[in-house]
Design a protein around this nucleic acid. Sequence first.
DNA 1: TAGTGGTCTAGACCACGGT
DNA 2: CCGTGGTCTAGACCACTAG
Lengths: 233, 233
Amino acid sequence: MLKYQKIYNDLKIQIQQGFYKSGDLLPSENELCNKYSITRTTSRKALDELLKEGFIEKKQGLGSVVIERRKSLGLLNVKGFSEAGGSNVKNIFLQKPVISEWSDQIIFHVSEEETHTDCIHFERLRCIGPDPVMVEYNWLANFELSSLIEKEFVDQSFFKTLSQQYLIEIIGSKHEIRAEFANKKIARLLKVDEKTPVLHISVMFITSKPGFNIYAELYCITEKYPVSNFYKI
Amino acid sequence: MLKYQKIYNDLKIQIQQGFYKSGDLLPSENELCNKYSITRTTSRKALDELLKEGFIEKKQGLGSVVIERRKSLGLLNVKGFSEAGGSNVKNIFLQKPVISEWSDQIIFHVSEEETHTDCIHFERLRCIGPDPVMVEYNWLANFELSSLIEKEFVDQSFFKTLSQQYLIEIIGSKHEIRAEFANKKIARLLKVDEKTPVLHISVMFITSKPGFNIYAELYCITEKYPVSNFYKI
DNA sequence: TAGTGGTCTAGACCACGGT
DNA sequence: CCGTGGTCTAGACCACTAG
């Protein structure tokens, strides 16, 4: 392994495992130089990777600060899920994680490596205050992830669980977005009439674990809580 | 100006103005060192900026290759606009660029600097083959952009025109996405019934020109051509 | 004032691509 | 084989932040 990758990995794991928390300062570039017997070019390269992936911010005169929210991942968020914060948001399991068949609801191509593996599936209804706003179906290959089935999610967050317990990060995504009529099941769950327009988002999340993707089909009502997205180079 | 910024700027302008075209090789890192009397650290830094912003790909053993398609900007695209390519896509002006009032259709906050300036507005109907798929309303402040009103767009592309004629790049975006019923005008333009679900996307494009944003309201039918998005770190 | 990150120099060796 | 980008060393000076 390259030197800068070693430093990068060590620091990333310490961030993911909570040794460095949001707001903490990482060791300075010179401290890393001493600790690993490298030059500043190399310690900077390691930190620049963390910067690029949105784990830290660098502040001249201060240091490298760990940040809470990963840099915009091009993910689509329901406006309100982040603003409303934890207290006002409820995630209700319609189906707790189980081993199941791969569904033909998934519109993206699932690789053979994945389909030859068990599928973990779960469904959630996500609410802001008293309002149900999104139905979420998820599928992923069971690449040594069986404990997802037994344990609770960290902070009710699937991505946080993957990051902290399996060191798997989301590094990309594909979306397809449609406006559709709610079908019977979705209409019932979201407490709207059939023939209400709903947003149907098909997502494939690409992860840092090669060949491992997460597939989701989302249905949202957007009248009160539109889906939003922010991206900056 | 810093040395690496000077090299970066020089190269970027040459790419934008077409001196280096898609597929071309930029001068090698060592050539830049000689030309500008700098070290490789500095020439690499300049090229890394171009890499980060999606102008080039670096290929070990070959060089820095100019690429056509800017790295995924987190932009939402109608699936089909890119695949179908130029020949099958039609852009019909419903309103050619004109000076107008700022509209209250814009849902994002428009800065005072912008509202104190004239607004340039245009509307397009975008079609794939015989199918109208999107109605597009656009607004932007007339920061010395009057010639947009007289001239044709480069390859019918507004962003290409901004890049090549004004050296303005899109560096970020905010979206809000809703599923709605088509109103009368949209239904007529998209040749669907009223009460058909349409995708309504509100966009604010952030540009490389400080304080200059582009605002758009888009209405899409997504049955045949869903809106898609790809993002990778 | 001491320590931080930002820029830059002047070298070196390596892996990879095309000829 | 030569030239390319990728990694790395060992320094230097600067601008900025905090105590």
